[in-house]
């Protein structure tokens, strides 16, 4: 029974994955064309200096293949892509694949931590608000959420730095993932918190944790609101539903009614929203990465965009689109496990 359910879920996930491939391809082509349309000439940008002559610029353009017609460039690009080559970044001089691989774990670690923090706060807050709708608690939570959304992340980030680093001196200086004097653990997962644990380096872990906590909280503050609101709304529906009334009619305990019956049903839409929030955070956290000098993919892509460095931007968009697809798949599978009705429908 359980096996058949799981099988159906996997099948459905595979179907979804296949149906998302055309969209992925569309994103690819669209980004490629968009980069060509945007103003700015990379050849000029990367010429030796402001005084570079026309001939030199032409030469660079030829080296970069930009003298060919756009469709031909696209074909070359797709051909390289098929061989797993995302091109080279002019800015860093390295291949885009390597750059992204170096920087993605930093972004992922930050986003995961932020999402975790957001969920840990948002779900209890949403439940509390739903249990006493219209009460002082409900209004207080609403105010908190509104503030979290209204204050831009670079403001709340700077505010947190001001309070915890400058005034209180608890937090380390907001420069990157780790203190420059700490030696890095052997990279296994790329997630510093995990790598330090695997290496058994507790003080290193603590250092990385202290670096991580402020940017993560900054990001979490921004997304607590949607998560808490969804939790509250679906919890209200759940608490007013017939099956909760049944649970009350047989005298189940308060905890069992609220958690086992109401919350487990209410959490289903929260899973979906959490997936969307995760994908959004990963791409949109460029401000947080900038404020905290976090070596993530978003700030990398922004720098590349500003210097008309095509390959990293294209690579970044492709990466984001792929992650979006993967996250949706994971959400699908999670949903299938959490809700037995899905696999049938």
């Amino acid at each position: 029974m359980i096996i058949t359910t799981l099988g159906a879920t996997v099948k459905r996930a595979a179907k979804r994955f296949l149906s998302s491939l055309p969209a992925l391809f569309g994103v690819l082509v669209f980004t490629f064309l968009l980069m060509r349309v945007l103003p700015g000439d990379p050849a000029v940008f990367f010429a030796s200096g402001p005084n570079a002559g026309k001939a030199e610029i032409e030469l660079i353009r030829k080296q970069m293949g930009l003298d060919k017609p756009v469709p031909q460039q696209l074909v070359y690009y797709l051909y390289d892509l098929g061989r797993g080559n995302l091109g080279n970044s002019i800015m860093t001089g390295q291949s885009v694949t390597k750059d992204l691989r170096d920087r993605l774990p930093a972004s992922l670690e930050l986003t995961f931590s932020a999402l975790l923090i957001a969920l840990v706060f948002a779900i209890p807050l949403g439940v509390l608000a739903a249990l006493r709708p219209g009460s002082l608690i409900d209004h207080g939570i609403r105010l908190f959420c509104a503030l979290g959304v209204c204050v831009p992340t670079f403001v709340s980030g700077l505010l947190l730095i001001y309070v915890f680093y400058y005034l209180l001196g608890i937090a380390p200086d907001p420069t990157g993932r780790i203190d420059i004097f700490t030696s890095l653990p052997p990279s296994r997962t790329g997630f510093l918190l995990v790598d330090f644990l695997l290496a058994g380096d507790v003080s290193g872990w603590w250092g990385a944790f202290k670096q991580l906590i402020l940017p993560a909280v900054t990001m979490a503050l921004f997304v607590i609101a949607p998560l808490a609101r969804i939790t509250r709304a679906s919890m209200l529906v759940s608490l007013g539903s017939d099956f909760v009334r049944t649970a009350r009619s047989v005298g189940l305990s308060w905890w069992r009614i609220v958690v086992t019956y109401a919350l487990r049903n209410a959490i289903l839409p929260v899973i979906t929203i959490a997936g969307i929030v995760f994908s959004t955070m990963l791409g949109a956290n460029v401000l947080v990465e900038k404020v905290f000098s976090w070596p993530g993919v978003a700030s990398y892509a922004l720098d590349a965009l500003l210097s008309s460095d095509y390959a990293p931007v294209q690579g970044f968009v492709l990466l984001m689109a792929s992650i979006f697809v993967i996250v949706n798949l994971v959400i699908d599978v999670l949903y299938g496990i959490a809700d037995p009705r899905v696999s049938v429908g």
Binding site: R245, T246, N265, R341
Partner: peptide, 13 residues
């Protein structure tokens, strides 16, 4: 016991 028995049972338990 209630009207609409399907809704009266927890759908995911």
């Amino acid at each position: 016991i209630f009207q609409n028995p399907r809704a009266a049972l927890n759908p995911i338990r």
